[in-house]
Design a protein around this nucleic acid. Structure first.
Length: 420
DNA sequence: TTTGTAATAT
DNA sequence: GATATTACAA
């Protein structure tokens, strides 16, 4: 652990070099004697037409052990990228670069290379943010970019390297499509049947049922009506539910299974009264206590994703995180612009409220640095390396976009443009 | 037959 | 990992 932070530091020292005109073969030293996840240092191309901002950002990033190659000119940056795309880990592009703005950059980079792109801008008009995100920006940073944010930029790279969710997005379909190919992914949104691979030889499998919040509400109501979790019994619950509403396709087994989980859950609730003192200290730590950052965040399933999840419609999007806390979340980064959708969408029933609490507990609320909700053990060394100098940690630029608006305007578009 | 539980599949 | 399905003992 300390080893990797040392590596980071050492590397950062001699790796940075100024851009030399004419020197086309600029390359970052690469030595990935890839043991477990040996990332020596993260190589970033930074593009911003504003020299001051560029310089500031670069300096800051350098302090965090990133290797930075900066460009004022978009065309040059693209040229460089074309040449060195395999040596670069991440691109940060100012939205307002004149010749090649953020969107164009996203388009080109998306087409020509497989690199995560972060867009930044001095403003955060909805349109700017939306367009960037739709175009595939994996983060949107408001300038001036705070240190905390910079400290965690590595994760975009890390996610990609580990490729947990290996991005299987039919690359061939992507080639040659134009700016207006926004609805590229709309394949089977409404076009009747889907002839998916698992539908071989007429043996269509029974579809997996999902417990929507609505369904669960019904379920809970039924359970309540028959005197609590312990009394209720699958068959009667089912009957009760079907009286209430046409719960078509719902089997007794489904109910039994759900009841099983539900009981488990409610049992846990009553016995899980207390958090450890350490937890509490961590959670209650003030916003500027950089020290607290040394406590590893809990390892869990929620986390940053550089893709926007796919939802069939707005309603699903709102419900999704509750419905599938483990798989369907509206996660964005760093707590600045994006956050889980449940945040503004309180639930009224106890089951979901409980889940919501769990979410929030594991979410940004317990991080003084607005780190992503979750960092795995493996990831942690990189963060801690970056954070080793507490002086660098400041707390500023807390900006929130109103998520309600965002969802309303954005989701129908996301829905068309992004699949998960 | 139904239920509770645990293994198995997604 | 979590959740849904399936299997099976009680």
């Amino acid at each position: 652990m300390s080893v990797s932070s040392n590596i980071l530091k050492e590397n950062s020292r001699d790796l940075l070099r100024e851009e030399e005109p004419g020197d086309d073969e600029v390359e970052f030293p690469i030595n990935d004697e890839d043991e477990d996840f040996s990332i020596t240092s993260i190589r970033i191309v930074l593009v911003d037409s504003d020299p001051e901002s560029l310089c500031l950002m670069k300096n800051l990033m350098t302090q965090y052990s990133y290797q930075v190659r900066d460009f004022k000119n978009g065309a040059e940056a693209i040229a460089f990228l074309m040449m060195s795309k395999h040596e670069i880990d991440l691109v940060i592009w100012d939205f307002h670069v004149p010749e090649i703005n953020g969107l164009e950059a996203l388009k080109t980079i998306g087409k020509e290379m497989d690199l995560p792109v972060v867009i930044m801008s001095h403003e955060h008009k909805k349109k700017t943010v939306m367009e960037s995100t739709k175009r595939g920006s994996c983060n949107f940073l408001l300038k001036p970019v705070s240190k905390e944010i910079i400290a965690v930029l590595w994760q975009h790279v890390y996610r990609k390297r580990v490729s947990i969710y290996s991005v299987e997005s039919n690359p061939e379909e992507n080639v040659g499509l134009d700016q207006d190919d926004i609805d590229l992914y709309q394949t089977n949104s409404n076009s009747g049947e889907q002839t998916s691979s698992y539908q071989k030889e007429g043996k269509n499998k029974k579809p997996r049922m999902t417990w929507t919040p609505e369904l669960h509400q019904l379920f809970e109501k039924a359970v309540e009506k028959m005197g609590g979790v312990e009394q209720a019994v699958p068959k009667q619950i089912l009957k009760c539910m079907q009286e209430e509403k046409d719960a078509e396709g719902l089997t007794r087994n489904n109910v039994a299974s759900h009841l099983q989980k539900y009981r488990l859950n409610s049992g846990k609730k009553s016995s899980m009264i207390q958090e450890t003192r350490e937890d509490s200290e961590w959670r209650n730590a003030g916003p500027n206590t950089a020290l607290t950052a040394s406590k590893p965040l809990p390892n869990s399933i929620f986390g940053l994703h550089t893709r926007v999840p796919y939802f069939a419609n707005d309603q699903d999007a709102r419900n999704g995180p509750m419905q599938y806390p483990s798989t369907n979340y509206f996660t964005m980064d760093n707590g600045h612009f994006m956050t889980n959708s449940f945040a503004n969408l309180p639930y009224t029933d106890s089951f979901h409220q409980q889940q919501q609490q769990q979410f929030q507990h594991q979410q940004y609320s317990n991080s003084s640095l607005q780190l992503p909700s979750v960092i795995t053990k493996q990831e942690f060394p990189y963060v801690s390396a970056a954070l080793e100098n507490p002086d660098l940690i400041a707390n500023e630029n807390s900006l929130y976009m109103d998520l309600g608006d965002y969802l309303q305007e954005g989701l129908s578009d996301f829905d068309k443009t992004n699949r998960y």
